[in-house]
Design a protein around this nucleic acid. Structure first.
Lengths: 341, 341
DNA sequence: TTGTATGCGTTATCAC
DNA sequence: GTGATAACGCATACAA
């Protein structure tokens, strides 16, 4: 049923030229005479010629493929970044290949192998193993092996002993802006919920949080720091635990926005007024402007982040050297969920 | 800086066997003696050998690539479907390639061309031109040309005169379940907002809606049918227009969930109690369980939908024949946003 | 069980 | 301007 795929030989024969000439018009080589170019183009259109990508890749040793590994594209935090990178990549003529790891190490391995076999120009990596405070030995080794062939750009993560390109959000600054904002609203009893131990984005935020509380001469209350996970559901779980305390905070910071969605939901389910608390998230994913109450949260400056990613990719592909580490500033988006104490 | 890529020739030389033998262990051909297989594998590991994907594709004429075109992966409706297809594809050993069209016809063309050049086994297509009630002549022609080489599976859309595989939600049944539900709650004044004229998912829902109102002996009120678009923002716009009417409905159906998110937001901004209306969406994207009030909406039976997609892909790749058109039933998810009149 | 020779469809290097 | 010819790296038919 499927039409046969013609080759440049077919075109050449039909146009009474050599395959070389056909290849030249294909690559846009300007030496070929205009009349023959037209002739060849006409035949191509007539036969609905479509050049074989695999053959092309094989001869042109260099590739323009960007591999993109992230945990879950249904998570707005990742999709917001991914889509912008895809758009810019397309503009520049790069090919981009998305893979979801679901934070499963074995899937990451599969994807890394695939990208290596495809001779990707570089790999953008988010989540999973680069977000572990203590990654497995095997993961580190594999990462190093891959990197000896294809450069890896780690977004909001890093790996001890692996010197890749890293582009990170200045999370400490983000946490500071939250605390500052809450203090200005009169809050002094602040909780931090969500995330899980061993995941650096949670570990780091926690240690930043402790440090910053000191800066503001506030006390850290261990009862108000509750690990769970990073999902909406785990936000409910964390909030539930938090509410079991005798003494409660007046403000609640979530490790990310999803946690707060869950926390708010838990309040509603327990018939607790959401006005009893100020809520602040982290990430500023797009539903945070839609949910009620709209969420005060830390924005990653996605545009700058994506620009830095693209700049790094460009440099890698152009063979230029890069600064290995970049830190992106955040900005606080103030919405309804945070209010006077 | 990058390590050289070894070939099967390098491995062969090092292992003192022929390249053919190396190729055999690579493809898992069982004829090779266990001892030589071990020897070859050892060398491969030692040299960190990685087979060149492009070369492989070139010799094995057949490909396992699935192209996936959708408007925007940040839209949960699409990402929910995509991620499930990706998971199952990975299990089956297929390779999947995602492309966002942003509903731009030229981008669709670019992606279609790319997939053709990659000799994709099939293309899954959502949104854009297959969702136009009257597609351009060029779009139809191009689609037909592509389909003469690679089969296209259209999800929730179709194209006049193009006989592709189609898998569609039974939208009329979905609308019927909404109206039935609202009527059972005592509503008789029902609005339909969002979507835009010329997009079949909106056109079809509208005509279904009219038909079904008749079934229930209710009158269609043109003032309560407002086209806008498919985004949250357009939901606000539509709601704003609706509220300008002297006489208002008691229930509001959105062309999709996003429209209702916007409509609810507009109510809040105008200090209109959201309890004045019952809201029902369509799609059951995941934030609909998170937003407040949680949204009554029509679920596409995503699992069945995705299974049908996979079944169709399997059959195409296996060379079996398929039923060309499939219709998936929906089910209504009742949450807080719909209530007694 | 292993090896030789050839093809896959394109691009690149030479000549002419 | 154009055309032979040789890669590119792997898989496979055929031979041994």
């Amino acid at each position: 049923m499927n039409k046969r795929n013609f080759t440049i030989y077919d075109i050449a024969k039909e146009a009474s030229v050599s395959p070389t000439t056909v290849s030249r018009v294909l690559t846009g080589n300007p030496v070929v005479k205009e009349s023959t170019r037209q002739k060849v183009l006409a035949i191509m259109k007539e036969l609905d010629f479509s050049p074989n990508e695999a053959a092309r890749r094989l001869t042109k040793q260099q590739t323009d493929l960007i591999g993109f590994i992230l945990p879950d594209i249904t998570n707005p935090f990742f999709s917001q970044i991914y889509i912008e990178v895809e758009k810019k990549a397309l503009e520049k003529g790069y090919t981009i290949l998305l893979r979801n790891s679901m934070n499963i190490s074995a899937m990451e391995s599969t994807h890394l192998r695939e990208f290596t076999e495809r001779r990707a120009a570089c790999i953008v990596f988010m989540g999973g193993r680069i977000n572990k405070t203590n990654p497995d030995m095997y993961e580190v080794t594999e990462m190093q092996e891959v990197m000896s062939r294809v450069p890896i750009i780690m977004i909001n993560g890093k790996m001890k002993g692996v010197k890749s390109y890293t582009i990170r959000t200045n999370e400490e600054e983000g946490i500071r802006s939250i605390v500052k904002h809450l203090v200005s609203l009169g809050h002094s009893k602040i909780a931090l919920i969500g995330g899980s131990k061993g995941i650096s984005s949670a570990d780091n935020k926690l240690s930043s949080f402790k440090r910053i509380l000191k800066e503001f001469h506030l006390e850290f209350n261990q009862d108000w720091q509750i690990f769970s996970d990073f999902s909406v559901e785990s936000g409910r779980v964390a909030m539930k635990k938090l509410l079991e305390n005798e003494s409660l905070p007046t403000a609640i910071i979530g490790i990310n926005d999803l946690i707060i969605y869950g926390a708010v939901k838990e309040c509603r389910d327990q018939n607790i007024s959401i006005n009893d608390f100020s809520f602040v998230g982290f990430d500023d994913i797009y539903p945070s402007d839609i949910v009620y109450p709209s969420l005060t949260t830390v924005n990653h400056n996605y545009e700058i982040l994506v620009n830095e990613i693209m700049k790094t990719i460009d440099n890698i592909i152009a063979g230029k050297t890069n600064k290995k580490g970049k830190l992106i500033d955040t900005h606080l988006i103030i919405r309804e969920s945070s209010k006077e104490c």
